[in-house]
Design a protein around this nucleic acid. Structure first.
Lengths: 219, 219
DNA sequence: ATTGAATGCGAATAAACATTCGCACTACGG
DNA sequence: CCGTAGTGCGAATGTTTATTCGCATTCAAT
């Protein structure tokens, strides 16, 4: 942030800018987020925006930060409550929470997550994934005797991303699919629970070859 | 396509434009794809590009079409070969194929898939998903006696998207994760195989509420 | 060889944005 | 009631791009 808002009115201005940005993203998508439009919507001038944000990306980062924090807080709360439950119930609770979180603020998180490959948003996603990993570990620790819970990094990675992105993809379907929301949730919960409980995967690696040259994402 | 290329040189020109587009996407990402740059790279002028493509999106659509066809052809071939195998092996084969396909042409499919929420690319993804669904159904049909294979639409949706997007996310990590590629593959294969074989998910829906108002993606 | 269609060219046009800058208003400690 | 730091303004600037259009070149059938 270029300059810190000192007076009250300045702090209000900054937060209304971030709010306006969120509203615009919800209404017309991230691509429709222009600095002038944000300023207009917030009832201030572009100049003022640049008084407190170095550039547009910094504004987006602030928005992400906000959304991400909410998301993590939600997950934390729900996970705490369900920590004692069996894997099936635990998975269920987290999934419901995830759905709710995606819907919160009119699908703001959903619209943002679509652009996860952008740097700002990617960092938010990464933070979220890390937090989920910790939550799963906490669950494992709490149930080390009851079940053979074992969230290996690879497994956790698969579960977390499978759920998040499948949800994302589901929400993006314009023609409703052949199955109901409940079914989807049930399937995912079952999958997650199974992966949490089951042992190591049956087969061992069918040795693979070359590593792909990964490119850095262009803007 | 605005006008069909009739002469030989025109056909060459069109395909070199699509190739150039692919190269640029691979090198600098989809955002770096400008019409002028494509033309330059193909060794022709922008004007010529617009002779055969109504606009930039149509060019992208042509690229997608190409990539998507390759992808589907690969999946078809591999699935055919593995149709007789057990679920674990079948899943393995498809996963390996998927990895290879993502790496083909220097990660072109990977870079494109990151932008699946764009209309052109979304259609390609949808086609791919549909094809995968058919493949899974074919497998189920072939094994209706051996296993209790049951790819319900919801389940198939979860498996397909989990695999595709988890792979995508994995490839996009800049810092290598704590697990090896083999582990990831093994986990995903196990997951897929389990979902293919297992019965209906344990619990039933914890009835959910409101439907989120879906917005049409910008651009 | 002639000619109309097909092809190819690339400077020019226009629209969309991010960002800046000089000027004016406001708060508030003294 | 001053003065200055903090705040706010929004037209102007510069850049990046998609797309067009009038002119030049090539093809292929007669």
């Amino acid at each position: 942030m270029r300059k810190k808002p000192i007076q009250q009115r300045a702090r209000v201005l900054v937060s209304s800018l971030v709010d306006a940005a969120g509203d615009i993203v919800v209404e017309d998508g991230l691509d429709a987020l222009t600095t002038v439009r944000v300023a207009e919507r917030a009832g201030v001038s572009v100049g003022s925006l640049y008084q407190y944000f170095q550039n547009k990306d910094e504004l987006i980062a602030a928005l992400i930060e906000q959304v991400d924090s909410d998301l993590i807080a939600t997950v934390d709360r729900v996970a705490m409550d369900a920590l004692a439950a069996d894997p099936q119930t635990f998975a269920r609770a987290l999934l419901n929470a995830a759905f709710d979180a995606f819907e919160a603020r009119n699908g703001l998180a959903y619209e943002l997550l679509k652009h996860w490959h952008r740097l700002d948003i990617g960092r938010g996603l990464y933070r979220f994934e890390q937090r989920m990993l910790e939550v799963l570990r906490a669950y494992a620790l709490a149930h080390i005797r009851d079940h053979q819970v074992d969230p290996s990094p690879a497994r956790a990675f698969v579960v977390i991303n499978s759920v998040v992105f499948t949800l994302l993809r589901y929400l993006s379907l314009d023609a409703p699919p052949l199955f109901r929301r409940d079914e989807l949730l049930a399937e995912m919960a079952a999958m997650a629970a199974r992966l949490l409980v089951a042992g190591s995967p049956a087969a061992q690696g069918t040795g693979r070859r070359k590593v792909p040259g990964r490119r850095s994402p262009g803007r």
